[in-house]
Amino acid sequence: MSASDLSPDAGPPLAAFDDEFYVEEVQRDGDTLYYYGMPLRQPDVVMQNVWQAFRDAGYEPQLTTRGGRYVIVAEPAGASIDGIPWKNVLLFLATVVSTLFVGAQWFFIDPFANPWEAVTTAWPFSAAILVVLGTHELGHYVMSRYHDVDASLPYFIPFPTLIGTMGAVIRMRGRMPDRKALFDIGAAGPLAGLVATVAVTVVGLYLPPVQAPPGFDPGPNAVTIQLAFPPLIRILAGVTGQPLTYTDPTVNIHPVVIGGWAGCFVTLLNLIPVGQLDGGHIMRAMFGERQEAVATVVPVVLFALAGFLHFVEHYSLNNVFIWIFWGGLAAFVAAAGSARPVSEEEDLDVRRKALGVLTFALGILCFMPVPVAIVG
């Protein structure tokens, strides 16, 4: 199909960007359009200048090469949700099951021996985890829709970890239009999640502690898992006057507080300022390309933290491995690059910069040198 044969309503009019990209041929495959030709400026500049025209026509463009030729691939933006998102629903239901399974054990209940008791007792734990993670991701989703960036609904990841899940994610299918959108979408998740974290933690602190059943004996070879509480949760415990620990080893805080712990931990990891993590988005929006210099230092800091805890504080490798893992992951994510908005010309306003500083400060309140200690 030639450019002259393309229906005007199948994409933006060629005149809208003919001074940026010389179109030699247009092809169509389903709803996707392919504009073959030659960029008349640097590719990044071309994308910055043509992006709005495609977005106004309902398409998300990407300039790439195919078969040695430059091509703008334009896919429908698809901001609406058609029908029931079954994959999201099924993953959510599976995560409900996995969090109930793990939550029952925090209540000293065997979910295999007493499945109904597990469900009726552990549902507050499951609800706490889902509210914290769901609110975080919905923060991203709402701001994505506000800035007209194509994003999916949250995908929960069921897995029998300490909290019964590996978290939740949303897919960002569209590019960020500018630094303001990049900041708003990046910061909305941690800030919304922290609001939910504070609410869940306070509720959990006021709930009665959990008592191990009579005769409970894990045995001399049992492995004990101890969660460290970050400053934010300690502050909330101090303000409410509620204890976080008990002298009786068979008494534990209510598991809903663990939902708050999970919210802090997720926020801390997401605010690591590299690549496609929330912290990377915020730093990129605040400092532009200078964020990449920060990202190269982050893995070194995480490896150094692991080394300090192991060699100076004498924690076992099992207890500091999390920072070794995240140091390696941060290096990989940093090498993959950060999100680049279509336009980086306009700087952030003072209010957003102040909010960015506050977001990272709240992230520091979620820091735990050894989040999970394995004893035994």
Rank of each mutant, 00 (worst) to 15 (best):
R28E: 12
D29E: 12
D29P: 03
D31I: 11
T32K: 15
L33A: 12
Y34M: 11
Y34C: 05
Y36V: 03
G37Y: 04
M38C: 11
M38N: 10
R41M: 10
Q42C: 07
P43S: 10
V46W: 10
Q48T: 10
N49W: 02
W51R: 13
Q52N: 14
Q52P: 04
F54G: 13
F54N: 15
F54D: 13
D56Y: 05
Y59M: 12
E60F: 02
P61M: 04
Q62F: 06
L63V: 14
R66T: 06
G68E: 04
G68Y: 05
Y70P: 02
Y70D: 13
I72S: 02
I72V: 14
A74S: 09
A77I: 11
A77C: 02
G78T: 03
I81D: 08
I84G: 05
P85N: 09
L90V: 14
L91V: 01
F92K: 09
A94K: 01
T95H: 01
V96Y: 00
L100E: 01
L100T: 00
F101P: 09
V102D: 08
G103V: 01
Q105W: 05
F107A: 11
D110G: 06
D110M: 08
F112H: 03
F112G: 00
E117C: 01
E117S: 09
V119R: 06
T121Q: 07
A122G: 01
S126R: 03
S126D: 03
A127D: 01
A128I: 09
L130M: 15
V131S: 08
V131Q: 07
T135S: 10
T135C: 13
H136I: 08
L138E: 07
L138I: 08
H140F: 06
V142W: 15
M143E: 06
S144L: 02
S144K: 00
R145C: 08
R145I: 13
D148P: 00
D148Q: 12
L153K: 05
P154N: 09
P154C: 05
F156T: 03
F159Y: 09
P160R: 09
T161M: 07
L162C: 07
L162W: 00
I163Q: 07
